[in-house]
Write a protein that binds this DNA or RNA. Structure first.
Length: 832
RNA sequence: GGGCAUGUGGUGGAAUGGUAGACACGCCAGUCUUAGGAACUGGUGCUAACGCGUGGGAGUUCGAGUCUCUUCAUGCCCACCA
C-alpha cells in the first residue's frame, strides 16, 4: 500500500478489473430476492453533465447497498438515442445522425465507466438501433390491433416559409426557430394513442404508488384534470337551414343554469357554419380566419382581452324558456368538453369580462347573505343560496348542482358527465431520426399495418438533410412505395416517425430481457424483474415520461404481454444541480465538466461530494470548496488505512470477546452506532448527506482513539479493536467510495471484492452510549444536564433532577405543579 | 389565477413532539514550516451581560424547527379546461 492516495491510478486499475471479471453481471436465476434499481436513461447529447453524475451516483449507491444486503440486483443502463438534436446536427454540419449518435454514446460510455458505476453492460439498450426499434414498432402494432392507436386530423405547428411542420420545441415566441416566420396552425392527419381510455385508472392508481412523492402525483392528477359536471343540450330556435339542431355544453356549474344569458362556441366548432346567419357570415368567417392565424401563445395569453362575434342565431334555455344569443369566441376551446360553453356572467370571471365588453345582460342566481355581491364589478364564484332559479330557489348551490342536473336527466335534455383534461397522445413526428411508424396506405385497402415478419421498417440511409419544407425521410428513393400486404397492389409508406417518448415508455421492460431477438421481452422475465423497485431521475419527467410509461404498462398488460399494472414502485426525483444559485447551463457559463473533476480529484471524490451536501430530492449547490473538502476527507481516510497497514496485521481476524478497557469499549460502541445510523439513513429515504457526515464522525472517532492509543498498537487487544473499526469503516463506505475501498480491501488482505462483501450488522446493545445525559428542564427550558446511569427508573431520575443544586436554586420558593419524566432522556419540572 | 415544494448561523445543511445548529465549508488562533500550502490542535448562532434565537402572527402541549390555523417570501409545475 502506498503512503499517498493516487485516485487516478487506483480507479483505472479497478475499473478494468471489474470489467474483465464481469463483477456486476446480473443473472436472472438466483435464490436471493430481486431488486431492480434504475436511473432514467440519458439522451446521448455528447457529454455527461453534473445532473447525470448526481442521478447515476444515487442509483449506483442504492444498487450496491442492496447487493451487500443480500439482494440479486438488476442495475442496467442504455440510451434514449432517437430525437431532434441528432437531426439538427446533421442539418447544420452535414453529419450523419447515426454516426453523431454512436460517437456520443461511445464517449459517454467511457465517462460512465470512469464514474465507477456498477452496470451490467450486457443488458445495454439503444433505442435507435434496429434490434430495439423493431420492438417499438411491434408494440405500436399491438396497440393498433387493440384499437389504442388511431389516425385523425389534428392541428400542428406550421411554418409557411419553410413549408414544414415544426415540433413544439421549435416554436420560439410563436415564430419559426430557423427563419423567424410566424408559425400557424395547420390541420394534418396524425397518429394518436388513446391514453384518454386510461384517464380514470391512471388517476385512481396514483393512490397505489406509496413510494412516489406527492408532488409528482399531484402534477399527474392535475394533468389528467378530472372534473365532475353535466352536459346540457340547448335547442336552437332559429337555425338558418330550418333544421332541428341543438348545442350541447359541458359545465361544472349546473347550479348556475338559470343565469345563462348567452352561449359561446369555439371558432373551430364543427357545426358553426350551420349556426351562422347569412348576415353574420362575413364577420364570423373573418373572426375564424384570424383565430386560425393566431399562435398558441397569443391565443392562450391570459392578459389578452377576450374577443368574439355573434352568430346571429339563438338557443332556448329549457329550464326557463328564455331565448339567448349564440356567439363564437376563442376563449372557448374546441378540444375540451363539447367545444361550447354556457355563459353565466354573474358567476364566472371569464363570462363576466366578456359580457362587460359586449354589453351582454347579466342575471344573479346565487347569493350569500354573509358575503353579499351584486355582481356589478366582479363575478361571484363562491358558494351560496339559489335565487331567480324557479323551483330551486333557496337551495344551497352545492345541492342544486345535483338536483338541477337530475331534472335535465329526467326531462331528457342533459346528463351527469365526468370530464378529463387529458388529451390523446399525438405520436406522429414529421422527422427523420425516429422509429418509422410501421403502416402503409394502400390505394384500395386503406391503412394497413406492416406485417410483423417484415419488421423492422428500417430507417433509410439515402436521405438528403439539406431539403427545406419537408421531412428528410421523404427524399429517400428506397423508402417509398411498398406493395400492399393485403392485395399486393400499390401502396404508399408512412413517412412519419414516432415521438421519442414512445421509445422511452418501455425501455425499462427491455432490460429484463435485452438480447431477445424473438420477442420484445419474455413474459416471465419481465414479470420477475418488474416493477422497478427504485426509479431515480429528474422532476422534469414528472408528467410526460412517467405518465406515458404508466399508460404503456397498463396497455401492454391489457394486451396480455405482462401481469403488473404499475411500472415503478418507488420513485426518487432528484433535485437540480446548481452553481452560484442557478441551474448549470451552457448559456449561463456556470457548468462544471465531470471530466475535469475525474482528472483532478478522481471519481470517488466526485461521488462523495455529489451526495454529501443536500438530500437527494433537494437542489444541490455545487461548490469548488466542497469538492476540495471531500478530496481532503478521502486523503484522511487513506492515511488512516495506511496507518493500519503499517501497524497491524489485517489478515488476522478480530476477536473482541474480552474487551475490557473503557477506551476500547467506547470505540466499539461508536462503530456500532455508526453502522446503525448509516444503515437507517440509507434505508430511510436515502439520506446520503447524513450518511456521509456519519462517515466523517466515525473517521474522527477512530483518529481520536488512535491519538490516545498510538503506543498500544503493540498490544493485541488494541490491534483487534482497530482492525474491527477500520474493516467496518471501509465496508460502510464501499457503496460510495467504490475504488478507494476496493484498493484498501485488497491491500489490507481482504478476500474477493469488497463489493461482494456483506453489509455490516450492529448489535443493539452496543449501538448506544454507555451512559446517558439527563436533561433537566424547568417549564420546558433546559436548565441543567446530569450524567446518569441508563438503568435508572422514572422515580430515580426525578429524584436525581431535584437533587441538582442548580435546580434547587431555581425552584426555591416556587410550587412544583407537575413533573414529567421521559425515560433515559429528560425531566421537565413545571413550576408556578 | 390554481397546485406543489421550501423558508434554521456568514454558507451547505443536522435534529422518532424532548439538549436547536450534528457533519462540513468559511473564518479566527495556535503547532509544524525560510515562506506559502498540506497536516494537526483549539475556537466559532446572536448578546458586554441578564438573556434571545428556526420568515411573521396566533393556537394545541408540561414541552413546538417539528402538529394546526393564518400571513409573507422564494422556487418549480400547470394555466381562458367552462
Amino acid at each position: 500500500m502506498k503512503e499517498a492516495y493516487f485516485p487516478q491510478e487506483i480507479e483505472k486499475k479497478w475499473q478494468k478489473n471489474w470489467e474483465d471479471n464481469k463483477v456486476f453481471k446480473t443473472e436472472d436465476e438466483s435464490d436471493k430476492p430481486k431488486f431492480y434499481a434504475l436511473s432514467m436513461f440519458p439522451y446521448p447529447s455528447g457529454k455527461l453533465h453534473m445532473g447525470h453524475v448526481r442521478n447515476y451516483t444515487i442509483t449506483d449507491v442504492i444498487a450496491r447497498f442492496k447487493k451487500m444486503n443480500g439482494f440479486n440486483v438488476l442495475h442496467p443502463m442504455g440510451w434514449d438515442s432517437f430525437g431532434l438534436p441528432a437531426e439538427n446536427a446533421a442539418m447544420k454540419h452535414g453529419a450523419d445522425p447515426e454516426k453523431w449518435t454512436v460517437e456520443n454514446i461511445a464517449y459517454m460510455t467511457k465517462q460512465l465507466k470512469m464514474l465507477g458505476l456498477s452496470y451490467d453492460w450486457d443488458r445495454e439498450v439503444t433505442t435507435c438501433k434496429p434490434d430495439y426499434y423493431k420492438w417499438t414498432q411491434w408494440l405500436f402494432l399491438q396497440l393498433y390491433k387493440k384499437g389504442l392507436a388511431y389516425k385523425k386530423e389534428a392541428a400542428v405547428n406550421w411554418c409557411d416559409e419553410c413549408g414544414t411542420v415544426l415540433a413544439n420545441e421549435q416554436v420560439i415566441d410563436g415564430k419559426c426557430w430557423r427563419c423567424d416566420h410566424v408559425v400557424e396552425k395547420k390541420y394534418l392527419s396524425q397518429w394518436f394513442l388513446k391514453i384518454t381510455d386510461y384517464a380514470e385508472v391512471l388517476l385512481e392508481d396514483l393512490d397505489k404508488l406509496k413510494g412516489w412523492g406527492d408532488n409528482v402525483k399531484t402534477m399527474q392528477a392535475n394533468w389528467i384534470g378530472k372534473s365532475q359536471g353535466a352536459i346540457f343540450r340547448f335547442p336552437v330556435v332559429d337555425a338558418p337551414s330550418g333544421e332541428k339542431m341543438e348545442v350541447p355544453v359541458y359545465t361544472t356549474r349546473p347550479d348556475t343554469v338559470y343565469g345563462i344569458t348567452y352561449l359561446v362556441v369555439a371558432p373551430e366548432y364543427a357545426d358553426i357554419e350551420k349556426l351562422t346567419t347569412a348576415e353574420n357570415k362575413e364577420t364570423v368567417e373573418a373572426y375564424r380566419a384570424n383565430a386560425r392565424k393566431m399562435t398558441e401563445i397569443e391565443r392562450l395569453s391570459t392578459e389578452r382581452i377576450k374577443t368574439g362575434v355573434p352568430l346571429g342565431t339563438h338557443c332556448k334555455n329549457p329550464f326557463t324558456g328564455e331565448i339567448f344569443p349564440l356567439w363564437t369566441a376563442d376563449y372557448a376551446l374546441a378540444e375540451y368538453g363539447t367545444g361550447a360553453v354556457m355563459a353565466v356572467p354573474t358567476h364566472d370571471e371569464r363570462d363576466f369580462a366578456f359580457a362587460k365588453k359586449y354589453n351582454l345582460p347579466m342575471k344573479v342566481v346565487i347569493q350569500n347573505s354573509e358575503n353579499p355581491s351584486d355582481c356589478e364589478h366582479e363575478a361571484y364564484t363562491d358558494e351560496g343560496i339559489l335565487v331567480n332559479s324557479g323551483e330551486f330557489n333557496g337551495m344551497k348551490n352545492t345541492e342544486a348542482k345535483k338536483a338541477i342536473t337530475q331534472k335535465a336527466v329526467d326531462e331528457g335534455f342533459g346528463e351527469f358527465k365526468t370530464q378529463y383534461r387529458l388529451r390523446d397522445w399525438l405520436i406522429s413526428r414529421q422527422r427523420y431520426w425516429g422509429a418509422p411508424i410501421p403502416v402503409v396506405y394502400c390505394d384500395k385497402c386503406g391503412i394497413q399495418p406492416v406485417p410483423e415478419n417484415q419488421l423492422p421498417v428500417m430507417l433509410p440511409k439515402d436521405v438528403d438533410f439539406s431539403v427545406v419544407g419537408k421531412s428528410p425521410i421523404t427524399t429517400s428513393k428506397t423508402f417509398k412505395d411498398p406493395v400492399c400486404p393485403v392485395c399486393g397492389g400499390h401502396a404508399v409508406r408512412e413517412t412519419d416517425t414516432m415521438d421519442t417518448f414512445m421509445c422511452s415508455s418501455w425501455y425499462y421492460l427491455r432490460y429484463a430481457d435485452a438480447k431477445n431477438d424473438k420477442e420484445c421481452f419474455n413474459k416471465d422475465k419481465v414479470n420477475h424483474w418488474l416493477p422497478v423497485d427504485q426509479y431515480v431521475g429528474g422532476i422534469e419527467h414528472a408528467i410526460l415520461h412517467l405518465l406515458y410509461s404508466r399508460f404503456i404498462t397498463k396497455a401492454l398488460r391489457d394486451c396480455n404481454l405482462l401481469d403488473f399494472d404499475e411500472p415503478f414502485k418507488n420513485l426518487l426525483t432528484q433535485g437540480m444541480v446548481l452553481k452560484d444559485g442557478s441551474k448549470m447551463s451552457k448559456s449561463k457559463g456556470n457548468t462544471v465538466d465531470p471530466d475535469e473533476i475525474f482528472e483532478n480529484y478522481g471519481a470517488d471524490t466526485a461521488r462523495l461530494f455529489i451526495l454529501s451536501d443536500s438530500p437527494p430530492a433537494r437542489d444541490f449547490d455545487w461548490s469548488d470548496a466542497g469538492v476540495e473538502g471531500c478530496y481532503k476527507f478521502l486523503n484522511r481516510v487513506w492515511r488512516l488505512l495506511w496507518l493500519n497497514h503499517k501497524n497491524t496485521d489485517f489478515s488476522k481476524d478480530y476477536d473482541l470477546s474480552d474487551v475490557k478497557e473503557k477506551d476500547n469499549d467506547d470505540l466499539i460502541r461508536t462503530v456500532h452506532i455508526a453502522i446503525k445510523g448509516i444503515t437507517n439513513d440509507i434505508s430511510n429515504d436515502y439520506q446520503f448527506n447524513t450518511v456521509i457526515s456519519k462517515y466523517r464522525e466515525l473517521v474522527n472517532a477512530i483518529y481520536d482513539w488512535v491519538n490516545n492509543k498510538n503506543k498500544g498498537f503493540y498490544i493485541d487487544e488494541y490491534k483487534n479493536t482497530y482492525n474491527f473499526a477500520v474493516k467496518t469503516l471501509i465496508r460502510l463506505m464501499a457503496p460510495v467510495a467504490v475504488h478507494l475501498t476496493e484498493e484498501a480491501w485488497h491491500e489490507l488482505g481482504g478476500e474477493g471484492s469488497i463489493h461482494a462483501q456483506e453489509w455490516p450488522v450492529w448489535d443493539e446493545n452496543l449501538a448506544k452510549a454507555s451512559s446517558i445525559t439527563l436533561v433537566v428542564q424547568i417549564n420546558g427550558k433546559v436548565k441543567d444536564k446530569i450524567e446518569a446511569d441508563e438503568a435508572l427508573g422514572q422515580e430515580e431520575l426525578k429524584a436525581l433532577a431535584l437533587s441538582s443544586e442548580k435546580i434547587k436554586e431555581l425552584t426555591a420558593g416556587k410550587t412544583i405543579v407537575k413533573t414529567i419524566v421521559v425515560p433515559k432522556k429528560l425531566v421537565n419540572i413545571v413550576v408556578k
